[in-house]
Simulated assay, not measured.
Amino acid sequence: MHYTLRQLEVFLAAAHTENITRAAQQLSMSQSAASSALKDLEKQFSIQLFDRVGKRLQINELGRALRPQAESLLDQAQALEHAFKQHDCIGEIKIGATLTIGNYLAVDIMAEFIQRHPSASVQLHVANTEAIGQQVLSFNLDMGLIEGEFQHPDLEVTPWREDELQVFCSPLHPLAKKSSLTDDDLIKAQWILREPGSGTRQAFDRAMHDLLPNMTIGLELQHTEAIKRAVENGLGIGCLSRVSLEAAIDSGRIIALPTPSRDLRRNFYFILHRQKYRSEGIIRWLELCQNS
């Protein structure tokens, strides 16, 4: 074999940090050792994996093409190392989740996962659909649980479970007494919504596509709790996953508003990179999610 796993680690760290000094720090190496490892790898095969722009390393087309295979190989090597050291095939897994899933579903799943696999380490990163998709593509996350549709040829996107959005308002809002909302009500309302790029906003825009040009969006916020608080304080009406609204509706802090003319159903999805090695930890996490 004409390359080492250490050389692949340097290649991937440089691709992630775009700087050989930061790559060396990430791997606890000296800058000169990391630089030599990368140069030796390129020289060995007479290739160039990066474009050098000052101190910045910009991965080129060849580097991007080889990156998934290097990621997969290192993942398998790390899984084997965990098995040798711990006699346990489940080590660390990095899970990404969108806000609704991360705040209302993933933490309970993570707790049960750790209870079943005490030696496992789970990192949970919460962001919107666009951000999670990009991090799965760049191998910064092992897999993602998303509430929007994110299509890319390098990703496997698998439906997980059904969900439905719910329009809601403050008990003191003029619409609170209506048995259902008409399209005219939806157009005249002041809306408080998630930001573009989130799965919730994607589903809302799809359901309201023909009304959007005439709708008034007063606020766009990145957090479901901030939207609920704004709605409770009478700043407008909102639309979020029913999963995130159950406790507030039950307590009477907000009122659910039926919208029979609008289809607010959607799916939650698993996303994984097609080149990602399916470690024992990933397999067990998927099984637990599917059975939850």
Rank of each mutant, 00 (worst) to 15 (best):
T4Q: 07
L5R: 10
L8V: 15
A14V: 15
A14N: 12
T21V: 13
R22Y: 14
A23F: 10
A23E: 13
A24H: 07
S30L: 07
A34H: 11
A37Q: 12
Q48N: 12
L49S: 05
F50D: 02
K55P: 02
L57M: 12
Q58H: 07
L62P: 06
L62H: 05
A65E: 12
L66F: 05
E71C: 08
S72C: 12
L73K: 15
E81I: 08
F84A: 13
E92T: 15
I95W: 10
T98H: 02
D108F: 08
F113A: 06
F113V: 07
H117V: 08
A120R: 05
E130Q: 11
E130L: 15
F139M: 07
N140H: 12
I146C: 00
E147D: 12
E149L: 11
P153V: 10
P153D: 01
W160C: 00
D163Y: 00
P174Y: 01
S179F: 01
S180P: 00
T182N: 07
K188N: 13
A189G: 09
I192M: 09
I192F: 11
L193T: 15
G197F: 11
R206M: 04
D210Y: 05
P213H: 10
N214H: 13
L219Q: 14
T224E: 09
T224F: 03
V231F: 01
G234N: 10
I237A: 07
V243G: 11
L245W: 04
L257C: 09
P260K: 07
S261M: 05
L264W: 07
Y269I: 04
H273K: 05
E280W: 03
G281S: 04
I283F: 08
R284V: 07
Q290K: 13
